[in-house]
Every structure is written in C-alpha cells, then in structure tokens.
C-alpha cells in the first residue's frame, strides 16, 4: 500500500508540482516549431499529478483535479478529432494543417496545436486513470487485509 505523506515528500511535492506543470505547458506549446509536443507534455503533467498522489493520496488528487480522469480522455479525443475537420470545410483532405494569426497579440494558432492539446489531455487522462485506479485498488485490498487482521486479533483476545 502506498502510504500518503512523509514530511519531505509533502513539501517537495508542493514545490515541484507547479514547476512540473509549467514545464508540461512549455513543452506543449514549444512542440509547435521545436522538439516537444502533446505526448511528452502529457507524460510530464501526469508525472506531476502522480507525485502529488504519492504525497497526499488518491482521494486528494481527485479533489485537486476537479474533473474525472475519464472526462479528460473524452475531451482530448474530441479535440483531436475536431482538429481533423477544418481541412474538410476548406475542401482539403482531413488533418490538413491550417494556420491562423490572432491579429492583436500576434500569436499563431493552428490545428496541429489543437491536435497536440487533444493528445495532451488523452495522455494525461489515461495515465492518471491507470495510476489512480491501481493505487485505489491496492488501498482497498490493504484495508480489507487490515480489517481481517483486526478481526483475528479480537478472537485471540477472547
């Protein structure tokens, strides 16, 4: 069973997690022109939440996330497919990259970015689903065992 919380881990997680998440965001946006991208960003992001989970337990992680991990997968898949469609509207094949410039702040927006965000969410969601579910499974098992042992103790005492 993963015991939530030693002091060092708790403090470290609190400090490291924002950094990791920011790095994930950086990787996600940098994938636009340079090495980086949705998948690796998703892994780094999932790493951040996994660290938090080791420090504070799965229930706290779920609270921190606010959304269900399955929703993340759904939205990610949805965004990724959405990014395939603009090509259709313009009479080009699916997944043809489209670039738009946002006029005032001078930022390029593109369908590959939307696709990357989708991948990011899918990876984040699926890794977290697996990690959190496994931990919860383990905890439930350990609690059952503990209860069993407590029961045995009582019979011993009697």
């Amino acid at each position: 069973m993963v015991k939530p919380g030693t002091l060092i881990l708790n403090v470290a997680a609190g400090l490291l997690m924002p950094l990791q998440l920011m790095f994930a965001l950086f990787l996600l946006l940098r994938g636009h022109d340079e090495p980086g991208g949705g998948f690796i960003a998703g892994l780094v992001g999932a790493g951040a939440f996994a660290l938090y989970q080791f420090a504070h337990g799965p229930a706290a992680t779920r609270r921190l996330l606010h959304v269900d991990t399955r929703d993340l997968i759904g939205w990610g898949l949805f965004l990724a497919i959405l990014s395939a469609l603009p090509g259709w509207a313009l009479g080009e094949p699916f997944l043809t990259a489209q670039f738009w410039k946002v006029p005032v702040i001078d930022v390029k927006v593109s369908t590959p970015l939307v696709f990357d965000i989708g991948v990011f969410l899918v990876v984040l969601g699926s890794v977290l689903t697996a990690v959190i579910t496994l931990t919860e499974l383990d905890q439930a098992e350990a609690e059952r065992k503990e209860r069993r042992e407590e029961g045995r103790d009582k019979t011993w005492n009697r």
Partner: peptide, 12 residues
Amino acid sequence: TFSVVLIRRAYL
C-alpha cells in the same frame, strides 16, 4: 499499462 492492471486483477 494495460497488462500491469490485468495481472494485478488476475492475481487478486
């Protein structure tokens, strides 16, 4: 990931 979850459940 899937196989790890699978063997965990199979073991249980």
